[in-house]
Write a protein that binds this DNA or RNA. Structure first.
Length: 509
RNA sequence: UCCUCGAUAGCUCAAUGGUAGAGCAGCCGGCUGUUAACCGGCAGGUUGUAGGUUCGAGUCCUACUCGAGGAGCCA
């Protein structure tokens, strides 16, 4: 491209662009990741938000003062580091800096997050600092790709972004699951969806979407729940269920494709099985709710759970053997650091063992839930897991019983017991990431459903107007960003998918 | 709301009912190619809270608090 000086946004070169400066002297600015000193030589690993780079400094007469000032820096001190860039296979990242100058920008002492294992409670209390770790930055980069891919996808298809309100005056069903806010003496609720407002906008712009935070006050403490999460919701006029499924399918393929294109190294850092993401191609399987119930009752589900049960038993036996071996080995090794490394591995094995035993214990319960499932109930978490594990790609489940779903979902004219809705279940047992439906466009049917649910019509008059003034078939869906990221990144818990997770009983920092 | 498990140094964890320890982080010293470097030293504690059993409790019992992940509910 152009010469180096033209590219600089300021006096500093970033680590990401070091490859273009081999043999040249550059100045980097960043934070100290680790620092090792051997008396006469020191290695300083710097992180600047674009990558990591090792600086090497020898203690010579010329650099004596510099050596002393750098060798006493604490982890995460911010510094400026100057030197000549050279290729070095032993250095992380492939380049290193022969340090010739440096300056402390901001000191750091006793950084709480050490290069050791930490518990989740501690890490969440240090979330503002935890964000700096390689794993967390990888997730944030993937989130950025996902967010951008979403906007790009809708923009390219002529969808218009419409921002819907966070304060919602009335609630649909289940008022207890929303956060109440005092709005000048009047109770309002933090939005759990922008959908009803979006339907209005779809009657204006035809294809619209909203993308923002959404709030649920459910007292759920599981790995797939947050009280504040981000959701993107498209809404389209003149669309039917098939059209919605196609849209959702293209949407998911587009998002996953972009992440595969832009974040391979991040996925590798997270230890994600990339082959599983590469299988995310059209078409996705489609089963109706009624078929899902049959699957749950049938031999495939039972076989799946039995296979899983024996695999878990095998895994547990292996882990127990390794635990035994590691424990014995730990008693025989002499070096303290060897004991420590084995100790860390033992803790890891115990964690995995505990998790495997928990899963094993749950399988008979899941089997029982699946067998005892009756048509008319909503699918439970374990039921969804079973359906999703039977497929390598995401699966659509459509046509749920009318009575388990919201009043605005369109009744199937061929079978009025069910509605034209769908959930999209991500594979690998992740479960629901999308929920959507065609909306009931006939005023009379909508009013009948509201009556059935015992809903007052008065707060919804504006919404009913959409059926009075040129109603058209329309529909849409909502995608949970954190759940999607959890699936793409292979996270155990979606709390890592957002910078500052809000969970039941956790609002700090 | 229910079920299961847990709480010991800043962090991760040890400790048959019998003198509370180790590693990391911190501080001091040593070491010229380290990859969570290594070696030596120093410092670091009201064992979540309140009771109880006992000659003696980190360990046993009861209650509570907080946390983890399941169920329900949901994206």
């Amino acid at each position: 491209m152009v010469d180096g000086s033209m590219k600089k946004e300021n006096a500093y070169v970033t680590i990401g662009e070091l490859g273009e400066y081999i043999g040249q002297e550059v100045a980097l600015a960043g934070w100290v990741v680790t620092l090792r000193s051997s008396g006469k030589i020191l290695f300083l690993v710097l992180r600047d938000g674009t990558g990591i780079c090792q600086g090497v400094l020898e203690k010579t007469a010329e650099h004596d003062a510099l050596f002393d000032s750098l060798s006493h820096l604490g982890q995460e001190s911010s510094i400026e580091m100057k030197g000549v860039v050279r290729v070095e296979s032993r250095a992380p990242g492939g380049y290193e800096l022969a340090v010739s100058g440096g300056r402390v920008i901001g000191e750091s002492r006793d950084f709480p997050i050490t290069p050791k294992e930490h518990g989740i409670d501690f890490l969440l209390r240090q979330r503002h600092l935890w964000l700096r770790s390689s794993r967390q930055t990888a997730i944030m980069r993937i989130r950025d790709t996902v967010t951008f891919a979403i906007r790009e996808f809708f923009h390219n298809r002529e969808f218009k972004l419409v921002d819907t309100p966070i304060f919602a005056p009335s609630v649909g069903e289940g008022a207890s699951t929303l956060f109440e806010v005092d709005y000048f003496g009047q109770p309002v609720y933090l939005a759990q969806t922008g959908q009803l407002y979006l339907e209005s906008a779809a009657m204006a712009l035809r294809k619209v979407y909203c993308f923002g935070p959404t709030f649920r006050a459910e007292k759920s403490k599981t790995r797939r729940h947050l009280t504040e999460f981000w959701m993107v919701e498209p809404e389209v006029a003149f669309i039917d269920l098939d059209g919605l499924l196609e849209l959702a399918e293209d949407f998911i393929c587009s998002i996953v494709g972009k992440v595969l294109e832009k974040n391979r190294s991040d996925l590798e850092l997270l230890g994600r099985d990339i082959g599983k993401l590469e299988k995310v191609q059209k078409p996705f399987a489609r089963v109706t709710y009624s078929e899902a119930v049959e699957i749950l009752h049938g031999s495939r589900a039972e076989k799946l759970l039995r296979v899983e049960y024996s695999q878990l038993e095998k895994l547990i036996a292996e882990l127990e053997a390794e635990l035994e071996a590691s424990t014995q080995q730990q008693a025989t090794v002499t070096k303290a650091w060897q004991k420590d490394k084995l100790g860390a591995r033992i803790i890891e094995i115990r964690d995995q063992l505990a998790e495997a035993r928990e899963s094993l214990k749950n399988i008979p319960l899941h089997l029982e839930l699946a067998k005892g499932f009756n048509w008319g109930k909503d699918l439970g978490g374990s039921d969804e897991t079973i359906i999703s594990k039977l497929h390598e790609r995401p699966v659509f489940v459509t046509h749920y019983p009318r009575m388990t779903k919201a009043f605005y979902m369109r009744q199937d004219r061929a079978n009025e017991q069910v509605v034209e809705n769908f959930d999209l279940l991500a594979p690998e047992g992740v479960g629901e990431i999308i929920g959507g439906s065609v909306r009931e466009e006939e005023l009379d049917r909508l009013l009948a459903r509201m009556k059935e649910e015992g809903l007052a019509t008065e707060p919804y008059e504006w919404y009913l107007d959409l059926r009075r003034y040129g109603s058209v078939p329309h529909g849409g869906f909502g995608l949970g960003i954190e759940r999607t990221l959890g699936w793409i990144c292979g996270l155990k818990h979606i709390r890592e998918a957002i910078a500052f997770p809000r969970m039941m009983g956790k609002v700090y920092p």
